[in-house]
Design a protein around this nucleic acid. Structure first.
Lengths: 197, 197
DNA sequence: TGTCAAAACGACTATATCGTCAATATGAGA
DNA sequence: TCTCATATTGACGATATAGTCGTTTTGACA
């Protein structure tokens, strides 16, 4: 009777499910990044993803849940950009500088990604917090070493994040310019009052 | 026959019109500042303003037109904050510093205003452009005097605006802290590589 | 090739929001 | 008090979007 392997069936299901789900998440990311101010609709998402409406609700309970999934993907892209190089850098300022440059290069190369980050930065609910936590840890370490003139960690984080976000907006708006990345980093380090090691 | 003064009638109308219109604009400003991500609705505006739906459409063609009116009011508040003091300051760095401090103080004192500015900064369509133009003029003058190490005016503007916006977000999020305003200004001047006169 | 559980579909109802318009209210001056 | 141009009202039909659900398709495996 039990001739079918139910576990295998479920696995197949999971794989197919993952493909379609990825389509929807990608469409959602594009729409979320490109919106001006009005909210995105389920109809717009399913049209962009090329799936039926029922399929959307099979995968997500609401647009909010989709947005959360997009945010999770964004978090992952940040981690992938950073994690490998973080461990091998003992100096907090090196880590901070590396991340700053890396993110800015990514934004220059992938405008859609940049738009999405900018949009997501509006709601600091979950995604931006991880990045900020890393940044704050680096700054705190540098402060402890007496190398930062801005004493308030939160303020220092705001300064670095603010410069990064607005420079990224500039790249989106006016395109990447040679030298911008390095100059932006230098400006940020000066702003924090960082003395070289 | 012509016993009524038509011009006077029209004036009365204009006054009453202005009052109701102001109510709607104020409600719109609150909603636009407080929104998370979904678009605001006409129904929400009329409820907040305490007027009927028809009244909204009597004054505005759409939500977009209301948003434009709110943006115009915001522009005006910036000008009022600045203009009187701008003319009597010959030094561009003084002007820039004054504006930076003034805006930050205003944001600390009036959180609703700050929220609205943050939200409006997303769409650099018209409102933010005036502020940016002033800022760029000041920076350009300082660059011409050889006092700024960041040579790209657009980048310099992005840096100053970025710091201001994110510090303002911090104030909204975590409340104003003593010393933040001055430290943020110092950091901005360092970021731009400004040497004192 | 047939089976079947998971996945996808899309038509449908419910609800929200838009935008209109005929009717009513307002209020300064005659 | 009456007039009337202007402003305000809110019910209404039109449209857009949300969310449901019975039906159909898919595809690995027996």
């Amino acid at each position: 009777m039990a001739k079918v392997d139910l576990a295998r069936r479920a696995e197949i299901g999971r794989e197919k499910r993952a493909r379609t789900r990825a389509q929807i998440v990608e469409a959602g990311a594009t729409l979320l990044g490109g919106r001006t101010n009005e909210a995105i609709t389920v109809d717009a998402v399913v049209e962009a993803a090329g799936v039926a409406k029922g399929t959307f609700y099979y995968h997500f309970k609401s647009i909010g849940e989709l947005a959360a999934a997009v945010g999770a993907g964004l978090s992952q892209s940040f981690d992938e950009l950073l994690t490998p190089a973080r461990l091998e850098r003992p100096d907090p300022v090196d880590r901070l500088s590396f991340a700053f440059i890396k993110f800015l290069e990514k934004a220059s190369a992938d405008t859609d990604w940049a738009r999405l980050v900018i949009q997501s930065s509006q709601s600091p609910i979950e995604f931006g917090m991880g990045v900020r936590a890393n940044l704050k840890a680096d700054i705190e370490e540098a402060i402890a070493q007496g190398r930062v003139s801005v004493r308030d960690v939160e303020l220092a984080a705001d300064i670095a994040i603010g410069i990064w976000l607005e420079v990224t907006r500039g790249i989106i708006e006016r395109g990447p310019r040679p030298g911008t990345t390095g100059q932006a980093l230098d400006a940020t380090l000066r702003a924090l009052g960082l003395s070289q090691r």
